[in-house]
């Protein structure tokens, strides 16, 4: 019984959170999950990337989060978000930023490059700060690209190589988190067209394809 209760309420907000954040989390939890059987054109995807002090979600620190929605296959400047985690003045300010990110993501499928990296950082932070088990529907471009663009590469490779393969301008200097997000968003726009062409025409199918490709590659 106790175990079951713990399982059922493991997402419950930690007691230390202020009421407004608790309330916001409750309302987020009660939001319906985005229907995933719609065509890509009708699905709002959120492309997300982070800046961090290093590559390890366990030991390094998150500095910033850049997210941009792709709706009707279009990137809209009005539907973007940037969290300056690094310069959050206090714990509550950070918590509110994280809640704002949850509200922005609004249970849309999240798109990134290497879920293990991006998702790892976010998961740790959401768990530590808000007690939230952050398990969104991920689309991992790192694994999906070689699966859908086998004509360009059949193996997982660094993002810069994909950018070059697509003939996109990679810019001279190092990309910021938002620049990287926008680059991923453009690649994702191209990927949606390719996916449609291969019959992967809903968000659900795309997420399945993403999972399958990463599973196959990791185990075989």
């Amino acid at each position: 019984m106790l175990g079951l209760k713990k399982f059922l309420f493991k997402n419950a907000s930690p007691a230390h959170l202020p009421d407004d954040i608790k309330a916001a989390l409750e309302s987020w939890r009660s939001q319906p999950v985005t229907a995933l059987d719609e065509a890509h054109f009708h699905t709002r995807y959120v492309v997300i990337d982070i800046a961090s002090t290093g590559m390890s979600p366990e030991t390094d620190e998150l500095l910033g989060v850049a997210a941009a929605a792709v709706r009707q296959s279009t990137i809209l400047p009005d539907d973007a978000m940037f969290l300056d985690v690094e310069s959050a003045t206090d714990a509550q300010a950070l918590d509110r930023q994280l809640v704002a990110l949850l509200q922005f993501a609004a249970r849309s499928p999240l798109v990134t490059y290497h879920v293990s990296y991006v998702g790892g950082f976010l998961q740790r932070l959401f768990k530590e700060r808000l007690g939230v088990d952050f398990q969104p529907q991920w689309v991992d471009l790192a694994w999906l690209l070689p699966a859908l663009f086998a004509d360009k590469s059949t193996s997982v490779m660094p993002l810069d190589q994909w950018i070059a393969a697509f003939g996109l301008d990679e810019g001279s200097s190092r990309r910021s988190a938002m620049e990287n997000t926008l680059m991923l968003a453009r690649i994702f726009q191209m990927l949606l067209v390719r996916a449609n062409g291969k019959g992967v025409d809903t968000a659900a199918k795309l997420i399945d394809e993403s999972r399958a490709s990463s599973f196959l590659r990791r185990t075989h």
């Binding site: 009005d78 940037f82 704002a100 922005f104 910021s176």
Partner: peptide, 12 residues
């Protein structure tokens, strides 16, 4: 949230 969205739009 409004502030973060504004910052997002500014960066895009």
């Amino acid at each position: 949230e409004a502030e973060s969205r504004k910052e997002g739009r500014r960066r895009v």
